[in-house]
């Protein structure tokens, strides 16, 4: 399972970087989104995958028995997803503003011919 997720994360990074090398704003933003989700998946995978072992201390034990699913990477991913979502929404609005004003979504043409 780790292998599959690692490959998936790699594919997300690869496609994200490829899209960011394009000149169009929309593709750049999709690339950024893919990149941040690749990073999220990587945190999740690197933290170790443990199925069906909730990090709850058993009633007759005083310590958590290994192996257990580590909650920390999940908390990190949750935080990162929220931040990533907000930032992505902001860049979409920014790109929309640029498109309305400049009438183009080619990054190199935005600045030219401006006021």
């Amino acid at each position: 399972m780790e292998l599959i997720l690692a490959i998936a994360s790699g594919v997300l990074f690869g496609t994200g970087f490829y899209l960011m090398l394009r000149r169009r704003l929309a593709q750049l933003i999709i690339g950024l989104g893919l990149l941040s989700n690749g990073a999220n998946l990587l945190i999740f995978t690197a933290g170790g995958l443990t199925r069906a072992r909730a990090p709850v201390i058993a009633e007759d034990a005083s310590q958590l028995a290994r192996p257990f699913a580590d909650p920390v990477p999940q908390a990190l991913v949750l935080t990162a997803i929220v931040i990533g979502f907000g930032v992505l929404a902001f860049s979409l609005v920014l790109a929309h503003g640029i498109h309305t004003m400049a009438g183009t979504d080619d990054i190199d043409e935005i600045g030219s011919g401006g006021r």
Binding site: L32, A46, L76
Partner: peptide, 12 residues
């Protein structure tokens, strides 16, 4: 994103 990736690897 790069920083976040690094943190994932670091924690792992």
């Amino acid at each position: 994103s790069l920083f976040l990736t690094t943190l994932g690897l670091l924690y792992g």
